[in-house]
Design a protein around this nucleic acid. Sequence first.
DNA 1: TATTTAACGCAACTAAGTTGCATTAATTGT
DNA 2: ACAATTAATGCAACTTAGTTGCGTTAAATA
Lengths: 126, 126
Amino acid sequence: MGILRKTKSVKILLDEFEKKSTAISAITLIERLHSKMNKTTIYRVLEKLEDDGFLHSFLGKNGHKWYAKCSGCSSDEHHDIHPHFQCTDCGKVDCLSTDVLIPNIPNRKVDMSQILLQGKCEDCYT
Amino acid sequence: MGILRKTKSVKILLDEFEKKSTAISAITLIERLHSKMNKTTIYRVLEKLEDDGFLHSFLGKNGHKWYAKCSGCSSDEHHDIHPHFQCTDCGKVDCLSTDVLIPNIPNRKVDMSQILLQGKCEDCYT
DNA sequence: TATTTAACGCAACTAAGTTGCATTAATTGT
DNA sequence: ACAATTAATGCAACTTAGTTGCGTTAAATA
């Protein structure tokens, strides 16, 4: 079950993802919004926004949770099977539109893939 | 700096990876070996074995640390850029020899890739 | 405007992984 | 084989991302 009420917290969080299109870690949001809302609320709202298909989540390089805007997902189906790119210098994470082809694996049924690329982003790649 | 002394703990841990070729999570090792060694020791030995190129590590589906035997790595260079497969039923993780082609990403320098596939393994795929 | 109940804040908790330090045991030299 | 050296270990305490329970607040609706 996702969002039922359009609360102040929901609006604030949606706004964060609206104004910049990079992914944001839960930890970053907790630091950034600590004066406006409780961390429990942040985790709960993010979870609901994911259920609703507004955001998708994935794990960054330390196993920490990141969220980013979905494009064209619904509560029924998440089809954000794109790779994510994390800069090892500045830590920024972007969603990549590039497709990575997952070959068929014999005797296994692949339902999901999580691809995290690491390296230097356009700003840090001098 | 990796392993200097061939201690009892090192032998026990190497043996765990010798007798089965699937990946093992740090948590599993802590449970399995709690009567034989301390969890601090487990984490420290695993780290050293990775430095030495005997093991490689990656993050499983909950961001927990997993380790698996390397094949042909050295302390200088890890070239285990293979995908890992985690069964969503039994939780088992295997290293896949299948190559996944990472396309060039414009304006970015990709140094590392971490690919985790999830689905049903050969035993659970009925 | 009153009622209902989803959403919130807070404090306490959980668990993976880390750190500091005193003790133990693997290696090295004699 | 034994003593000296110091890497490795065990233990307890800590760190921190994320979770849970519960009393209170504030959106929706009637």
